[in-house]
Simulated assay, not measured.
Amino acid sequence: MADRDRDTKEADRAAPEGGVTARRRRRAQFLRELHEARELRDRVQPRRARAARMRQQMRMRTFRW
């Protein structure tokens, strides 16, 4: 984890401010952390996670294309 943070900081210094690659790297890191947080929440609260899955399935069933 620390190696990845160090790599991103070094790459941010090398890339121009507001560059597309820096934005994509930050977005990818954010999405990784979001996915990790969701997995942790699902493990800790299995009943709530199951209810959320059921609600999502219902939403998809009733969605009109």
Score class of each variant (00 low, 15 high):
A2W: 01
A2G: 09
D3Y: 04
R4I: 10
D5F: 09
D5K: 08
D5L: 07
R6S: 05
R6I: 01
R6D: 09
R6F: 01
D7K: 10
D7W: 02
D7A: 14
T8L: 13
T8I: 10
E10L: 14
A11E: 10
D12Y: 10
D12P: 01
D12H: 14
A14M: 12
A14G: 01
A15K: 00
A15F: 01
E17C: 01
E17L: 06
G18N: 03
G19S: 15
G19I: 01
G19A: 14
G19M: 01
T21N: 11
T21K: 11
T21R: 05
A22H: 03
A22Q: 07
A22R: 03
R23N: 05
R23Q: 09
R23V: 02
R25K: 02
R25S: 01
R26F: 06
R27M: 06
R27C: 05
R27S: 13
A28T: 06
Q29G: 02
F30S: 12
F30A: 10
F30L: 13
F30R: 11
L31V: 03
L31E: 12
R32C: 10
R32D: 15
E33K: 09
L34M: 12
L34W: 13
H35V: 05
E36G: 14
E36V: 08
A37D: 08
R38E: 13
E39M: 03
L40F: 12
L40M: 12
L40R: 15
R41S: 12
R41E: 10
R41L: 14
R41F: 07
D42I: 01
V44F: 08
Q45M: 12
P46W: 03
P46C: 03
P46N: 05
R47E: 15
R47G: 14
R48S: 13
R48A: 15
R48P: 06
A49L: 02
R50Q: 13
R50C: 07
R50A: 15
R50M: 11
R50N: 08
A51W: 05
A51F: 06
R53E: 09
M54Q: 11
M54I: 10
R55Q: 08
Q56H: 04
Q57W: 06
Q57F: 04
M58F: 07
M58D: 12
R59P: 05
R61E: 07
T62W: 15
F63T: 04
F63D: 02
R64S: 04
R64K: 12
W65H: 02
W65G: 05
W65R: 11
W65S: 06
